[in-house]
Design a protein around this nucleic acid. Structure first.
Lengths: 408, 408
DNA sequence: CTAATTTGTCCGTTAGCCGGACAAATTAAG
DNA sequence: CTTAATTTGTCCGGCTAACGGACAAATTAG
């Protein structure tokens, strides 16, 4: 009961911003005395601090505001992708404490070697936490894969060539062996290290700190090699019975269409995946198809051509935009989200994709006042940020995880 | 706190069946004394009764079991469909107290006249409650429409020709005027009368009392004139931001396909709706297409032909089954449900649809151990039952809604 | 028949929220 | 400038309800 009320006040402070105790009491329905007691405890745990005094508001004694003090708590998110590994540390206020990216040819390396690299990155993140006096409360790994979140096992990651990799145990073991001082600062809770699907975490990242943060019903689409999706339903992440939800890349939208990597024809991915865009926008011997280029180089080339008005590129983007709207209409009809966020390359090239996409979407969505479409502002870091956010959620759910400073 | 623990025990008793107080205490984590006190209160509210004594279990004093006593509480569900109105009363144990169906050409009547008919049916249901000493706790209207559940307004029901019909107010007003004795027995809570989408409620009905009752992640598909869908996510109904989720009939799966009633081409509905089946299985002058027939008559004719091995009918069912699997694969990949329940005519003709559907589904679903497919056993009453269940949920959420018998 | 075990109830203890009282700090009015 | 009014934050008593332990009752094993 106490726990749940502490969480209530802490969340309210995060969502609604700094305010006086009396106001919190009115807004949460708790008693003023109770709020005083709760905030005192939160202050003692270092999660909240007193801020300015509300002056000149109206008649009466001015209120002493209290506000979230996220500086002392950090959540770590690490994303493993095809050609890089990224780590982000966010504090409770969602401010970036640490961010680092390492290029890594994950497909070419055994999973163990990748976990070694992840460990190295995690240790750097933990060192930064230590230096900045940030207490790490958890770490989440984002992987482009079907993940068993309960066991912390990556079941199947086609793009990484991983099958049944026990990522959580592997990471825990490495951190245990390596400099126990750092690991000692991560709590021993079972859930202190987690793994999850990257698109799911990216959706959470958008929900936590994207341009439309806090939108309870949100669909996130990301365009990379394939197409990924993550869905927030009523403020909670949709996971499905086995945690395998959001597999939207293989919706069969074009019966006689192109062959997909999955062996079938006409999957959405064959219409809006990066490969489809390249195929339509360029011949195979075009420089943009050079296999030594990475994603961002390709995108800047395409973007440059589109800006220059190159017709083939513009045509390709229009077709991809229409196909994007076609598939998105299904998701919008099924989920009725408030907003659809486009990430990955859909965001990078959004200026050109948005118009044809919206036309198709509006033509096909049943519900009036169809949902808005927004471009992600988190770039390629959404998943790592979502991972960090998941770790922080544990504290917002149960503030007593953070130790008291003074003995009571 | 008390309320939430009363609800906890009551739900546990419903979900897990009769058992001793000591066992409830162990299973819920509550203290034995607390459970004694809670069950005493639930018994006093007439929601629970003492049952058999557990004999011969093991050493020790045998336990006095307590069990859900749903007989005194009733939830009312009323379904408005194109050609009939159905009312169902369920008690807390999900047993049918009352069930009645009235044929009604809803499209031909003004909404006010339909609400009159609904009121008449509701009054009969309330009378039956009165006679059987069942206390009604709420009523839910199921409508094939986009519904604003907060305001109780039917926003748009194409098949009924309804737009912006304030169904809850209309029904409340009629019941207020009519025999206040009956209405008096319905609580005055704002939420005592609700409206919701029929497919959503049917999904809830399957979740509450279908063959796979209690499956937290469940997708329900119903084939009637169109195709409807309702989704349970983690034990809760998916509603979407505006309550317009589950619009799956118009997924564009066949770009150059047939013209749909919505004005577009190749919607799923044009491949698996009843009209599609009839078109493929019979010529327009075939007796089965006679407009004076109702749904069930048509289905029994088709079913008879299939049983007799009529080739055109079998071919049509195979094609529909495949198209069903095609669209269902999208839903399964997106939601990763534990089970997919087929209702409406999909259930009636399930024997012939299932095989081609499963073949298509298994070929297209990404996740291993793809979800099961079950045929609904609730027939065409799933939505009304789901509505009754919604009304009953209020009591399971807050048992104190039911008055105490003895003064404490 | 006795010991062991399990159940259900009773009772004292404790956690924690609520309501009211009160001092402090401010604005509005005279 | 003074006084009244208002609002805030804290403190204290009261109350609800869960918990833990004790105990009688009812049963099985030996």
């Amino acid at each position: 009961m106490r726990r749940s009320n502490l969480a209530l006040v802490l969340r309210h402070l995060r969502d609604a911003g700094p305010r006086s105790r009396a106001r919190i009491a009115v807004e949460t329905g708790l008693n003023r005395g109770t709020v005083s007691s709760l905030t005192a405890e939160l202050i003692d745990r270092g999660l909240v601090r007193e801020g300015d005094v509300e002056r000149g508001g109206s008649v009466g004694r001015p209120g002493q505001t209290v506000e979230l003090d996220g500086r002392g708590i950090g959540g770590i998110g690490v994303e493993i992708n095809v050609d890089y590994v990224t780590a982000v540390v966010l504090n409770l206020s969602n401010a970036v404490v640490f961010e680092h990216r390492v290029a890594l040819d994950v497909q070419a390396l055994p999973a163990e070697a990748v976990l070694d690299a992840v460990t190295e990155l995690a240790i750097r993140a933990l060192a930064e936490c230590d230096e900045r006096q940030v207490t790490p409360v958890g770490m989440t790994l984002a992987v482009p894969a079907l993940v068993d979140t309960d066991d912390g096992v990556v079941a199947f990651a086609p793009n990484l060539h991983w099958t049944k990799v026990d990522a959580v145990s592997g990471l825990r073991r490495r951190l245990d062996g390596h400099t126990p001082g750092f690991w000692g600062s991560l709590p021993r809770r079972h859930s202190a290290i987690q793994v999850d699907n990257d698109a799911n975490l990216a959706a959470l990242g958008e929900f936590a700190m994207g341009s439309r943060a806090g939108t309870a019903d949100l669909v996130y689409l990301t365009g990379e090699t394939g197409v990924g999706g993550g869905v927030m339903v009523d403020g909670r992440l949709l996971r499905g019975a086995a945690g395998f939800s959001g597999e939207i890349g293989h919706m069969p939208l074009n019966p006689g269409g192109d062959l997909c990597g999955c062996g079938r024809r006409g999957c959405w991915e064959t219409m809006v995946g990066l490969a489809a865009l390249l195929r339509m926008a360029a011949t195979p011997d075009d420089p943009v198809c050079d296999p030594s280029l990475d994603l961002e180089q390709r995108l800047s080339m395409l973007s440059g051509r589109a800006d220059a008005g190159e017709p083939r590129t513009l045509d390709a983007l229009k077709l991809v935009g229409e196909a994007l709207g076609l598939g998105a209409s299904i998701l919008v009809n099924v989920f009725n989200p408030r907003v659809l966020v486009l990430g990955g390359y859909f965001a990078s090239l959004g200026d050109y994709l948005l118009e044809p996409m919206l036309a198709e979407l509006h033509a096909r969505v049943i519900a009036p006042d169809a949902c808005e479409v927004a471009l992600s502002t988190l770039g390629f870091t959404a998943a790592a940020r979502g991972g960090a956010h998941v770790a922080l959620e544990a504290v917002l759910d149960d503030p007593t995880l953070v130790a008291l400073r003074h003995t009571p």
